[in-house]
């Protein structure tokens, strides 16, 4: 697969010479073929949940370290479970509470884990660019998967959302998708927008007050900005709600939860202008009564729990792709050395 856009530095960092995924840091720079390939492979992993023994031996003997510099039990659990279903050995490190507090630098932590022959880092960090930094500085035998970096990127979440959309809607090209909420601070939104546009969705809308829309969003992302929820969700096939962090509700970006819900909270009534078969998604955890009404969250159009189970298959696919590419390259290297 050599169809990645040229001159994108992400391409050189993420892909090897054969176009295989070495690291999975961002969707920016991956081609449509790459994304489709990931979705197709994830289909295969769905079946594992039906096995009596919910485990395949793909990554047997591999060590996967969950490096969480930012607490997130939910995300860490899905990565941990995905790794375990691939038969890998999993190390969980909450780094903010241990090493770095003692003055050890991030690079020191990495070097220590590399010396333990870790094969993959799954990284969650509060700083945008942290996964890129780690990928640039890690040893050649380690793959890095971004499990969320600052406001930048959360590519596995983006892919599992695409997987869920494809399950319900099939073809992407004719879809209208609305993303509602705090796009400014959302790594999830950035990954979703990149994935949707790469997969050929021409009508992507972001809906929020101006304080939560990043600068030049339309020109940067090729989306349409709406400030009115009802107009924004008209005729859409998919509504993606974003999480509004508590700390944004204190008056700095929006005046209050109440006003936000009044204007941008998703209710059944407001959803009425969307297509009758529109699905509603949310990366979780939901602030009920702020982002959406419980009747929508638990209603027939909600696919929120499917997102969770799909997340496992998608993460298994991505992890095994990276480890597989890595195995291949190490063998090539050995062959070249002989």
């Amino acid at each position: 697969m050599t169809c990645a856009p040229p001159n994108n530095p992400n391409t050189a960092l993420q892909l090897d010479a054969h176009g295989r995924l070495r690291h999975f840091l961002t969707l920016d720079g991956l081609s449509r073929a790459h994304l489709i390939d990931i979705l197709d492979r994830a289909e295969g992993f769905l079946g594992i949940a039906r096995q009596a023994i919910k485990k395949v031996p793909l990554c047997r003997g591999k060590i996967i370290a969950n490096l969480f510099f930012e607490n997130s039990t939910r995300t860490r659990t899905t990565f941990e479970l995905a790794a375990k279903r691939l038969s890998a050995d999993v190390l969980n490190l909450n780094v903010n509470t241990s090493a770095t507090a003692k003055g050890e630098t991030l690079l020191d932590t990495l070097r220590n884990l590399e010396a333990m022959h870790v094969d993959m880092f799954v990284v969650r960090h509060a700083d945008s660019g942290a996964a890129h930094f780690i990928a640039r500085h890690t040893a050649a035998h380690v793959s890095v998967i971004n499990a969320g970096d600052g406001r930048h990127s959360h590519p596995t979440q983006g892919m599992l959302d695409m997987f869920t959309i494809r399950q319900h809607k099939g073809d992407f090209t004719r879809l209208k998708v609305a993303i509602v909420g705090d796009v400014l601070h959302s790594r999830v939104a950035r990954s979703q927008i990149t994935a949707l546009t790469t997969l050929g969705v021409e009508d992507v809308r972001i809906i929020a007050p101006r304080t939560l829309i990043p600068a030049h969003a339309e020109a940067t992302f090729g989306v349409t900005v709406y400030h009115d929820l009802r107009a924004g969700v008209r005729d859409v096939d998919v509504v993606i709600m974003l999480r509004l962090q508590r700390e944004r509700m204190d008056g700095g970006f929006i005046p209050s939860e109440q006003e936000y819900f009044r204007l941008f909270g998703l209710t059944e009534k407001r959803l009425a202008t969307a297509k009758p078969d529109a699905i509603v998604m949310h990366p979780g955890p939901i602030n009920r009564g702020v982002e959406m009404d419980s009747r929508v969250a638990d209603g027939p159009r909600s696919v929120i729990l499917e997102q969770v189970s799909n997340g496992l298959a998608v993460r298994m696919a991505i992890m095994s792709l990276c480890i597989g590419a890595h195995n291949f390259n190490m063998n090539q290297q050995d062959a070249a050395d002989e």
Partner: peptide, 15 residues
């Protein structure tokens, strides 16, 4: 700079 790159990379911008 608060602009396209800050928006894409999710880095806080300076307007």
């Amino acid at each position: 700079h608060e602009g396209r790159v800050s928006t894409r990379l999710g880095l806080p911008g300076i307007p």
